[in-house]
């Protein structure tokens, strides 16, 4: 039965079950507002959604359990591309971390500088050797900035540096 913990579907089912319970319980904090709706109210739809979500998760959990039971020992080889291993996930996670830092720096140091730094950081993480790539990074960022600023009239965050 330990195998079940290795099954992605088990975790999918569990997380969505928890989400369903969470959504269901939050609806009980909804109060009637100034404007009234005598029939279904603000809670009806989220409750229906959460109940169906719980049922679907239970169905998924059930089918995973039975599948594990029936398959006994011979573990299916499993698709490598979806494996949750540290080896596979360390680079995506480093980049996610960079993106989080990037988001907070964006309002401070503006789009151009922060994005160039992000670009360089990612090139470093993916071990890009070519020097050319490091030069392309700021050029690309500045072109994007200029196109959006002057052509599409979108002022990207400037931070305190002004660009």
């Amino acid at each position: 039965m330990k195998n079940i913990l290795k099954k992605t579907d088990f975790w999918v089912g569990l997380i969505s079950l928890l989400l369903g319970i969470f959504v269901f319980s939050v609806t009980f904090t909804f109060k009637q507002t100034l404007i009234t709706d005598n029939f279904l109210g603000a809670t009806f739809f989220p409750r229906i959604i959460s109940v169906v979500m719980m049922l679907l998760s239970i169905a998924l959990l059930w089918s995973t359990f039975t599948a594990v039971k029936n398959s006994s020992e011979d573990e299916p080889a499993g698709d490598n591309s979806t494996a949750f291993t540290i080896e596979r996930m360390k680079r995506p996670f480093s980049v996610i971390f960079c993106l989080a830092v990037y988001y907070f720096l964006l309002r401070l140091s503006g789009f151009c500088i922060t994005s160039t730094l992000l670009f360089w950081a990612m090139l470093f993480i993916i071990k890009a050797e070519k020097k050319k790539f490091y030069v392309i990074a700021p050029v690309f960022v500045v072109i994007v900035y200029a196109v959006f600023r002057y052509l599409f009239l979108v002022q990207l965050p400037t931070g305190i540096v002004g660009f």
Partner: peptide, 12 residues
């Protein structure tokens, strides 16, 4: 970048 930054600050 640094030079551009100061230029913008001066303008502000």
């Amino acid at each position: 970048f640094a030079i551009l930054t100061t230029a913008v600050f001066a303008e502000g």
